[in-house]
Amino acid sequence: MSADLTARRFGVPQVTIARFAGRRLNLALVGLLIVVTLVALFARVLAPDNPVQPIGALNLPLGSEGHLLGTDGIGRDILSRTLIGIQTSWFSALVVVASGLVIGGIIGVAAGVSGGWLDNLLMRLTDLFLALPGTLVAIALVAALGFGLQNTLIGIAIVWWPYYARIIRGEARAMAARPHVEAARLAGISRTRVVFRHILPGVVPTAIVTASLDIGNVVILLAGLSFLGLGQAAPAPELGADTARNLQQLLTQWWVPVVPGLAVLLLSLVANLGGDAIRNLLAGRR
C-alpha cells in the first residue's frame, strides 16, 4: 500500500532532471531579485562619490577613470546618482506593492471570506476604484496633496490596492467555496481557525505571485511620475527626474539622460523575471 504512495503513476526519471534545471534557473532569477535589493540597501556604501556634490569635470563620457558612468552637466558622478536612484526607486516600488498587498489583502480576504453584504459593499467600492483611470487620479491626488516623493507614494497607494483586493477576494472566495472548507466547518473547527488554516494558506501563493509580478509595473510608473516632476525635489538623485532634467543633452552627451533610464529598465527586467520565476516555483510546488 505504501509503495503506491510514493510511486506516481507514470514516473520517468529524466523529467525530474529537466524540472530540476528549470528550478535552478528560476531560483537564480529569484536570486537576482535579492541581489538588486541588496544593492539598493547598500547603495550609499557602494556609491563611490557624493551624489549631489559636483566632483569632477563636466560631462565625462562612459568609462572615464574614477567615473565609470561618466559625469553630468555640473560634474556629478552618474554612477553614484544612479545607485542612489536605484535605492529610491526600488524601495518606493516595494513600499507601494506592500501597501497594495496589505490594504488589498485585508479587504479582499474580508470580502471573500464573509460573503453577503460586506462582500458586496467592499467589492462595489473596489470596482469603483478600478473603473477610474488610476494613474490620472494619482497625479491629481499628488497635485492636490503637494509635490514630493512621500505624497507620490501615498497617491499611488490610494489607487493601487483595488487590483489586489479584486484578485485576493476572488481567490479567497474560490477557497471558501471549496468542499474542504465545508468539511472543516462540519468537523467542528472554529471560524477563525477555518479562515487562518483552511482558507488563508491557499490565498498566499496567489498574493505573492500577484505582488511580485507587479513590482516591475510600479517601478515603471514611479519612474514616469518622477520624469514628470512628481518626485523628490531638484538636487536629490532620482532615475526618472535625472533623465528629464538632462533631456537637452540627449544629442550631445547621450549617456547623461540615458543611463538613469537604463537603470529603470534593469530594475523592471529583474522584477519581471523574478516575478515570473516566483510564479513558476509556486506553480511547481502545487
Binding site: 471549496r178 468542499p179 474542504h180 465545508e182 468539511a183 472543516a184 488554516r197 502545487r286
Partner: peptide, 8 residues
C-alpha cells in the same frame, strides 16, 4: 480530493 485541505 477537494474535500481535503491541500496544504495540510
Amino acid at each position: 480530493g477537494s474535500s481535503l485541505t491541500p496544504w495540510l
